Computed example of a mutant assay.
Amino acid sequence: MLTGSRKWMRTPLIIYSSHIATTLLPILYSFAVDDFAKMKRVGPETEEERLKLIAVYAPFLVMPLLILLTVACSGSYSQTTQPAPAKSAAPKKKHLKSH
């Protein structure tokens, strides 16, 4: 992925990384500001617990963002070059006339 040798990976990586990043933003926001004392669900009770939970989830936001930046901004993934025409794997047979 880092070398850009697999150009077909660009679109799936953009879809994956943007999906994960946009999913984690509301999760991290919820950890930061929601009052879990009023909810039936168990959640962080102190500021220290909130920060620990955010620290555990933060790499799952940072890594997809780095993937997205790498794929979107890297010249290795640019689609400006035309692919070479595919060559047939089997050699062509010459037809000889028999007299």
Rank of each mutant, 00 (worst) to 15 (best):
G43S: 10
D34P: 00
T46Y: 05
A72R: 11
Q79C: 08
K38Q: 13
L51C: 08
A32G: 05
I67M: 11
Q82I: 13
I27F: 15
P83Y: 06
V33S: 14
V56G: 01
P59M: 09
A58Y: 10
L66E: 06
P83I: 07
P26I: 04
L28S: 03
A86W: 03
F31I: 15
V71K: 02
A37T: 13
T80M: 07
T80W: 12
G43C: 05
L65G: 00
I54T: 04
L51M: 15
E49M: 08
E45G: 12
K87C: 02
V33T: 15
T46W: 03
P85D: 12
L68V: 03
Q82D: 11
E47H: 07
T23W: 11
T70Q: 10
T80K: 14
V42H: 07
T81C: 05
I67S: 04
L25H: 04
A55R: 14
P26M: 10
L65K: 01
P26W: 05
L68P: 01
K52N: 10
D35I: 05
R41F: 13
L61R: 02
F31A: 07
K38S: 14
S78Y: 08
L68C: 06
Y57K: 09
T23K: 06
L68A: 10
S76N: 15
M63D: 05
